[in-house]
């Protein structure tokens, strides 16, 4: 871990300005990912701005019938909130499928969106990794890639985004509210929030330097049956091989977002039109153009089969 300095932010704008104005400065909230990465010197901030205590820890009803989730709401608080459980069950189910109780108590809503990949080569600083060290190459390509991405990837990076919660947010068309150093705010649709790697896998999202997430907003509830099926090698406390987050209506229409396959929560709206035709048809469009490795080509079959099971379950 590199030596670093630390201060508490006094306001969101203050925090944003401090990070924007100082190279090497980073926000810290729950720290469940950042601190681990700092210990391994994968992340090497020189200054940490603590944004805990800025008050973004509330879940509020919005006038349009949606819900605003503060950036600092813990994963536990989010998953267990009565309104979330009633109207956005997919979020509760996805969130409790991730990490452990202890981690969810610390981890925040914004931090969950910003967690970095769990690719083993990203975690080993002796190995080339374009995400960790741009231009150094990708050791995962041609290496152990069983857990890694099959779609949306590039020749520079085949990492996946590890979040479960984000799969639910993507299926629900959530938005991310931010504030910048100049005090301006903006709303980023979740679909545009995470970026595909291309030649710049170290740039993972749409945030500008110093831009601070203040909330995640959820549109008016859309009803339907909410199912999150996470497939992994052990029954708990593991990252997904693949996961399906689905909202399925009585008439068989619905939405599907997939985890464990791509550098971002993977959703193809055009594929959802195929839902009445069954899982095979949906998967064909959802994963069209996939480029799996020998190690992870099973994910294509697994997505189709799991989606089939989820659709059958929704039918009851």
């Amino acid at each position: 871990m590199r030596p670093f300095t630390y201060e508490r932010a006094t306001s969101a704008r203050d925090a944003a300005a401090k990070v924007a104005g100082r190279p090497g400065a980073r926000f810290i909230a729950g720290g469940t990912n950042l601190l681990d990465l700092m210990k391994l010197e994968i992340e090497t901030p020189t200054h940490l701005i603590d944004v805990n205590g800025l008050g973004f820890d509330k879940i509020e009803d919005m006038q349009d019938g949606g819900v605003r989730v503060g950036a600092l709401v813990s994963n536990t608080a989010l998953a267990s909130h009565p309104r979330i459980r009633r109207d956005y069950g997919l979020i509760s189910r996805a969130t409790v499928a991730g990490a452990s109780g202890q981690l969810r108590n610390k981890a925040t809503t914004a931090g969950n969106l910003l967690q970095r990949t769990r690719c083993s080569y990203f975690y080993d600083t002796n190995m080339p990794c374009n995400k960790r060290q741009p231009g150094s190459g990708c050791a995962a390509l041609g290496g152990f890639s069983r857990q890694l991405g099959v779609i949306g990837i590039s020749d520079a990076c085949i990492a996946t985004h590890p979040s479960d919660m984000a799969i639910a947010l993507r299926a629900l068309d959530a938005s991310v509210e931010t504030i910048k150093a100049d005090g301006s705010t903006r709303t980023i649709p979740i679909a545009d929030f995470h970026r595909l790697p291309g030649n710049t896998p170290h740039i993972e999202n749409a945030l500008e330097r110093g831009e601070l997430i203040t909330a995640v907003t959820l549109p008016r509830p859309i009803g339907g049956t909410h199912i999150y099926h996470k497939v992994r090698d052990r029954a708990s406390y593991a990252f997904a091989l693949i996961s399906i987050g689905a909202i399925i209506q009585k008439d068989g229409t619905g939405r599907v977002a997939v985890g464990g396959v791509a550098p971002k929560p993977w959703r193809v709206e055009a594929a959802e039109a195929e839902m009445p035709q069954g899982a095979k048809a949906v998967t064909a469009k959802l994963l069209a153009g996939a480029r799996p490795t020998h190690h992870n080509e099973f994910k294509l079959t697994l997505v189709e089969r799991t989606l089939g099971a989820v659709m059958a379950e929704a039918k009851g």
Binding site: R118, S120, D124, A139, G143, F144, R234, S236, Y237
Partner: peptide, 25 residues
Amino acid sequence: LAVDKRFGFFVNHDLAGYEVPVHAD
């Protein structure tokens, strides 16, 4: 332990990568 046959090491060298049973198993 997943062997990287190019670099010659066990790739999944932590408890997130090397899974052992949890209570739920």
